[in-house]
């Protein structure tokens, strides 16, 4: 059901929601960029609609709410363990179509890939999603080619137009709220990007032989293995564990899980001093093929959702979409070599 609200009306709803939820949206962090006098757009708690950044892509995704960068799972001392408390409230997350498609990937990994992940599930169960419309594509987006530009399994859809907020609500629990605070009830159809400037083509004939292609070699020197591409990615789900003992009292400690990156040193280190992917080109190969090849073999659809954040943030101007587009040539290269 569609609603049109003024900003004050929507802020009333945010206020009502705040009793039960933290509301997260892309917002501007002044001076939060890497360089001086630059800002950052990333997810943070919002209290008013004015705080939401509608006209730019967030540098980092919504992922950090479901999967905190550093999450304490439990505390331990002697023979006792105490689980870390859950956040006091659930979460409402405002996100774009690509990101909502990415939630499916997170769920796949944490809920369907073997046993359910307890720590993910208890956060996930209390989350509602509000889709932000995309009136146009942003730089480096390739959602259209990935088929992630549209989605309809949202709790609500939101769009800002001429200072008014248009909502399509799918959540019956919220119906009275929207009815109370809306001015009109027009039909609201989600806006979505129908065209991107960036195009990708994922070839069908990828085989494991592609690992032997020379296309990966250039990344040995171009890539600096900083991991930004992984950290901004809405579908990267890898983590590592930290068991630490407090400095002041070594008998007490905590277990945390923190994001890990397949580009950063240490990711493939194993006992005995081995390291499976030493070169940055090998790491790039692993990442690219995981996003557009082997994840699909297991789950039936590609992992990458085409948000383009990895391209946006790479300090070395390495384009992930361009690396996908090199796969065709790589297939030919390795098949010719195989014939030889």
């Amino acid at each position: 059901m569609g609603y049109c609200l003024d900003q004050a009306g929507f802020n009333q709803i945010l206020n009502e929601w705040s009793k039960e939820y933290f509301v997260y949206a892309p917002k501007l962090f002044k001076d939060g960029g890497s360089f001086s006098d630059t800002d950052r757009i990333r997810y943070g708690e919002i209290h008013t609609v004015e705080e939401i950044v509608f006209d730019r892509k967030s540098d980092y995704s919504y992922k950090e709410i479901l999967l905190p960068l550093s999450q304490t799972l439990f505390f331990f001392t002697d023979d006792m363990v105490k689980e870390a408390d859950l956040p006091k409230k659930g979460a409402v997350i405002l996100l774009r179509s690509c990101d909502l498609h990415a939630v499916k990937r997170l769920d796949e990994i944490y809920l369907q890939n073997g046993c359910e992940d307890y720590y993910y599930k208890r956060l996930r169960d209390r989350v509602k999603f509000i889709l932000i419309g995309c009136q146009h594509s942003f730089e480096n987006c390739f959602c259209v080619d990935m088929g992630t530009n549209r989605i309809d399994n949202y709790d609500a859809y939101i769009e800002m137009k001429n200072g008014e907020i248009y909502v399509d609500n799918h959540n019956d629990v919220w119906k009275p709220l929207f009815t109370t605070y809306s001015r009109r009830t027009p039909e609201v159809i989600p806006a979505y990007a129908t065209e991107n400037k960036t195009h990708i083509h994922i070839p069908d004939g990828i085989t494991p032989d592609i690992a032997h292609s020379k296309i990966w070699d250039e990344y040995d020197s171009r890539c600096i293995n900083c991991g930004r591409c992984n950290f901004v990615c809405p579908t990267c789900t890898c983590f590592t564990m930290q068991d630490i003992f407090y400095v002041d009292n070594g008998k007490v400690g905590e277990r945390r899980r923190v994001w890990a990156s397949c580009m950063v040193d240490g990711f493939t280190d194993v006992a005995g001093g081995g390291c499976y992917r030493k070169k940055n080109g090998q790491r790039m190969r692993f990442k690219v093929l995981h996003k557009v090849y082997d994840y699909k073999k297991r789950n039936g659809y590609h992992m990458c959702v085409g948000c383009g954040r990895c391209d946006d943030i790479c300090p070395e101007y390495i384009s992930f979409s361009n690396s996908i587009n090199k796969l065709d040539a790589a297939i030919k290269e390795v098949s010719i070599n195989a014939v030889k």
Binding site: F29, D31, G32, S34, S36, R40, Y60, C226, G227, F231
Partner: peptide, 15 residues
């Protein structure tokens, strides 16, 4: 700050 990939390090508002 320049090298932090997650934004854990940021600059002070004050110069």
């Amino acid at each position: 700050v320049l090298n932090c990939p997650t934004g854990a390090w940021t600059r002070s508002h004050e110069k």
